[in-house]
Design a protein around this nucleic acid. Structure first.
Lengths: 337, 337
DNA sequence: CTGTTAGCGCATTCAC
DNA sequence: GTGAATGCGCTAACAG
């Protein structure tokens, strides 16, 4: 049977207000009746109707997810999907649920922020989106708890892998442990922030360590995928009669393409050249040769973001621009010696 | 500024009821005022507060998504993620949004169905779940529009790839076009319905075509991934001094593992043995050798499911047990000749 | 400590 | 064709 607080109030000989109080842990209720109500509620399986509660209390225990499709990065993208999955698991344990933010409600087009107001979401998690997207900037400027990953947005908390450290670990390994001399880089599109940071770190590393910088050893892939890796490697090979001893690659997807190109050119990995990727996608360890790479901790990213957001929702509500860096680790496999 | 129908009513010199009528296309409103209201609404960007609307109208324009985590198939699983993505794109165009169904709301544990009632979702899309899960069975038995994919549940509409046809196409190719004699099968865990159907179809094909069935040519992988493919292939090789001419593999993930094992055993693909997978995962075309496989149309599955569900929601509301099969196609690549 | 009451913003009668 | 009244189920403020 469908019940309201009124039903359970009369059934218990109490008033609706009291029921509401015990449910919301607010106001004074004697321990005795509190327990009585709680027991009864559990017994009959009563749950407050979310819509009515939302109407009054102006919140929804729901977190909006920005997963823009404009970038044609959908849920198919395992990296983001995985972060979202881990985020989801965590917030659900805390009693929140997820709802995808859309920019259209029925007929009406609306901004992310309008949608949030309309749905009364408690906070938003920006998984995929562009830092200069108007909708996202509006969100950042309004007073609604926000956490992002991957992209960094002025004014809001971001949880992101320690890209710098990943590159430094890789480079230390190549230059120091392996004592190599020349390390090239094949980066992903530099308009993407993460790729840019990785590239920057590489450049800085060479500079601060007074290592030679060779322009032809720097190639920017035209896109994110395997094929662009193949193309980038082809270009590198073409332009360099003498190849570097190692290549740092901006992402595993691209790196696997690089490996493919190398194989087609009969260049042996890791004997002729060593390769290090970034991400540790599931397939990295299955490829032949398996790929040495910087592992991003998707579980920790998702959970850290979840914790940060819930904390903002339940406590401060204070928005602050923090960059939370999640540690990465270099996984050594066959593509390096 | 935040508005309610009352605001816009007074601003227009009308009454709230009238506004409501034009928004909901109900009752009689003169064409003139209708237009006036519509225009004004658009101008000021008014959108009815969902919570209030839900409270009254008992619906939410939201579709619940069952994406059980019990099977440890999360959003990371690209096949399901992709279907969900395509489903999402479609329903959003139609003005619906997605919300993940959870079984816990705050403190209270609840069933899928209770959650649906509470959230007043208009329908549910079962992406990942077990056919014999109590929660799912309850959903199927209640009067709420439901569509599933991958799993088939008594009483509800399911959208699923034409597994039979995929296997028949593969087998026809191998036996008829290529005139091979022996084709083995490495199937995924048979407790999974899709794998079971594929396996069944293989057996039936051999039987009806009076082809010899060799027990050692039938291997069930212990799990879904790459590694289980390696193991299964190892087992097949071990048990068969004389290898089959081709292997049908239950999924691409497994097939790539099989290719790896073959490579390690110095068995040439496709010269010594030909391989056909199932799914057409993104990586299938990048592997060396690239994998011939049966492509599942994730776009069509997602969209077909969306259409079916929206149709149920907006029209019949009649639940019916239908199995909608989505065509598959054999993609020829290097792993076959 | 508990009960009463007034909305939250909208949709739906039922009058007009 | 339009407006006023009522209630959806709940919370919060206030009385008692």
């Amino acid at each position: 049977m469908k019940r309201t607080i009124y039903h359970i109030a009369t059934e218990l000989g109490l008033s609706p207000g009291t029921i509401s109080k015990v449910i919301n842990k607010t106001g004074n209720v004697s321990e005795e009746t509190r327990k009585r109500v709680l027991d009864y509620i559990k017994e009959v399986g009563y749950v407050p109707a979310t819509s009515a509660r939302m109407l009054k209390s102006k919140r929804s225990y729901t977190i909006g997810v920005v997963f823009s499709e404009d970038l044609k990065i959908g849920l198919e993208h395992s990296f983001f999907a995985s972060i979202l999955q881990n985020f989801k698991s965590y917030v659900e344990k805390e009693g929140y649920e997820l709802s995808f933010i859309v920019t259209q409600l029925g007929e009406h087009k609306m901004s992310y922020y309008e949608w949030c107001m309309n749905k009364k979401v408690d906070g938003v998690f920006i998984v995929v989106g562009e830092a200069n997207d108007d909708g996202i900037i509006e969100l950042a400027n309004k007073n609604i708890p926000c956490v992002s990953t991957d992209i960094v947005i002025p004014g809001i908390t971001s949880v992101i892998s320690d890209n710098e450290d990943g590159i430094i670990q890789s480079l230390d390994y190549l230059f120091k442990d392996r004592s190599l001399s020349d390390v090239a880089i094949i980066t992903g599109p530099l308009k993407s922030r993460s790729f840019y940071i990785r590239y920057q770190t590489y450049m800085n590393y060479l500079k601060t360590n007074k290592l030679p910088i060779k322009k032809s050893y720097i190639v920017e892939a035209e896109s994110f995928g395997f094929t662009s890796g193949v193309n980038a490697a082809n270009k590198l090979i073409e332009e360099n009669p003498v190849l570097p001893k190692a290549i740092l690659v901006g992402s595993d997807d691209i790196a696997l393409g690089v490996l493919k190109s190398l194989k087609e050119h009969q260049i042996k990995v890791p004997d002729d050249i060593e390769i290090i990727g970034f991400d540790d996608i599931p397939f990295a360890k299955h490829f032949t040769p398996s790929l040495t790479t910087v592992k991003q901790d998707k579980v920790m990213i998702g959970e850290t973001a979840a914790k940060a957001l819930i904390n903002m929702i339940e406590h401060s509500n204070q928005k602050q621009e923090i960059l939370i860096k999640v540690p990465v680790s270099l996984i050594l496999r066959e593509s390096t010696k």
